[in-house]
Design a protein around this nucleic acid. Structure first.
Lengths: 343, 343
DNA sequence: CAGCGGGATTGAAACCATTCATGGAGGAAC
DNA sequence: GTTCCTCCATGAATGGTTTCAATCCCGCTG
């Protein structure tokens, strides 16, 4: 049951049909649609607009992309869209892209190198105009993009891949501020919950933790590694609680982990921040609603997304604009001990 | 600094280049690439494969889409990707689509009719092969898709739009089970936190709540409406706590709201589930890690996503396969009072 | 040996929009 | 009246791929 249109067009309407209907050439239709530099007489334009409306003409994006060599699309590769940090990022990137009339193709690598490779290949084949990479498990695959001359932006990627621009946050500085804050509360044994590090380089957050401790002349607290998820954090929390020198404060490298840690601590009947203080990294909304509310290092996700998109499709598109670093901000709430709360 | 390839191809490599290099016609290349029905001699195939590898040939998706009239892409329109329910949905839809070689274009309507319309238009112009609509604010805009002959699937959309297939969960049944569970705990004054209903029809969850109450011969508890967000839930919680006949149990129509409600209750120094029991709808992971863990009605998001995608690009693509309903499941945890916990 | 069948390969049309070079008409200036 | 210029409009080429119809070549059969 199609809706009763005034004039039901059979099959797809092309710009040729419009031209015929309006009694002009196809070129004129093109000029009208795109408002090109070429002038079109007002009367003609009206005729064409009329024809477009009557026939329900809809430009064919594929043909346009073929001719123009641009799909008005950007790709995004993230580990997992159900992780709040990345879902917020996707949203922000989509917003920024839509602002410029670009569409966003979303792909999840799920921590799999093979999947990541497949996605990158696929995006390259689709002639996307740029790719935001927030998950780079295997750098050699980036040559796919380079070969296809597709600009890419790396997000929060530690060791800079040569030839690619990047956008991110100073992970080490952010982590240091948080750990220093914990130190300020008098803690001397501060544990760390990290992701399993895949890169050859040390994660910035781990560096920041180390720096803060050594600057304060403290010994390293226990380190636990695991997935950046609530479940991973839960397991990490249990191990930290059971560790020989149980820390009195924990810095978690993501809010998700901190949420899991909080649960492990609650279940053990230990109080936060009374017995153990917690701080983490990301600044997600969820951290604001945990109990107690998490003190966390905020990343300016929106600004980062906008910068990434603009590096891809802005005026200076794909010029490998080097590395943009954004400032973090410590959101002080209850889990660090700044406000006494009952748990 | 491009990587040193054996043979750096200048500019994009087309199938013509491959044909020339391999000493065959372009048609053969096409057959080799697509493994069409036409047979290609093994020797020839090897030559072509070789040429493809050496030249680094990459088929042009735009040209392919133009010729085939299919972009191997599906669109997804959701209210907000930073809402965990929808971010999980996006992920699941992306997975299901990628499984079939399709890419996913993600768009957020942010609750704006204008944005939703723009996105639907844009998707239609891009000749996506199907659209999953999880946010339908304004049904008339759906004709855009109908006109463009693009199949669409509605997700959890109450009143069925004629001519569109839909996938969802029996919201009323799910809500009823949860509310009945609360009644089973002896509660007689059960409040409701709902979204602001935009549809002319009553939301299924509200219906389920009403049914469970009337079946048990109970009076309606207080109703509060607000955004499906943590902040919305927080405000709702405060209002429920302050209401004249403060309920001893609350059913929230989304986990996000329940999380906010939990915070409001905590801050008021009231215990959950001791003084007020809480149950909600969605079955998100976040609900498992709240404190106390939320009893919630699980939606089989993955199955729904797969069904939606398969309705669009499966064997019976876009045949308006009617309405598929999936079963919900009550995940019983602590917030309803089934396990005594200290808060 | 002629004819035939069939598998492998080819050439060219079609898909739809963009854009350049060209053409024509009309007005203004001399 | 002629020339020149401006302003609009047009035809045709272009982009990369798919696929039909046609061709070619080889071997087999009668």
């Amino acid at each position: 049951m199609t809706t009763p249109t005034v004039q039901a067009p059979r099959g797809p309407v092309t710009r040729k049909d419009v031209a015929r209907y309006a009694g002009v050439s196809t070129a004129v239709v093109s000029y009208v649609v795109n408002g090109g530099p070429k002038k079109v007489a007002p009367a003609t334009e009206a005729k064409v607009q009329d024809a477009i409306r009557v026939l329900g003409y809809r430009p064919n994006a594929a043909a346009r992309a073929l001719k123009l060599g641009s799909s008005e699309t950007i790709g995004l590769v993230i580990p997992d869209n159900s992780n709040p940090f990345f879902s917020l990022l996707s949203h922000a990137v989509e917003d920024a892209a839509a602002e410029c009339g670009y569409a966003l193709v979303l792909t999840n690598s799920d921590g799999s190198v093979a999947k990541e490779r497949r996605h990158i290949r696929n995006l390259a084949a689709r002639q996307v105009d740029g790719v935001v990479l927030a998950s780079v498990l295997f750098e050699p695959d980036l040559v796919e993009l380079d070969d296809a001359d597709i600009p890419a932006v790396l997000l929060n990627h530690g060791d800079a891949a040569p030839g690619f621009s990047s956008v991110g946050v100073d992970l080490a500085a952010g982590a240091r501020i948080a750990v220093e804050h914990l130190i300020g509360h008098g803690h001397t044994n501060i544990g760390l919950a990290m992701g399993t590090n895949t890169a050859n380089d040390l994660d910035g957050r781990e560096k920041g933790w180390l720096q803060a401790l050594s600057d304060a002349g403290l010994l390293e607290g226990p380190i636990v590694r695991g997935p950046f998820s609530r479940a991973g954090g839960y397991a990490a929390g249990q191990r930290l609680l059971a560790s020989a020198n149980r820390p009195t404060a924990i810095f978690a490298s993501s809010d998700m982990q901190a949420i899991g840690i909080l649960r492990a601590i609650h279940e053990a009947g230990v109080s936060v921040p009374g017995d153990i203080a917690v701080a983490s990294f990301d600044g997600s909304v969820e951290a604001e609603y945990s109990w107690p509310a998490l003190t966390t290092v905020e990343q300016p996700v929106k600004a980062m997304a906008e910068a990434a998109v603009s590096a891809l499709i802005g005026a200076d598109r794909g010029k490998s604009a080097g590395h943009q670093l954004f400032p973090t901000k410590l959101l002080v709430r209850q889990s660090c001990g700044c406000t006494r709360t009952v748990t």
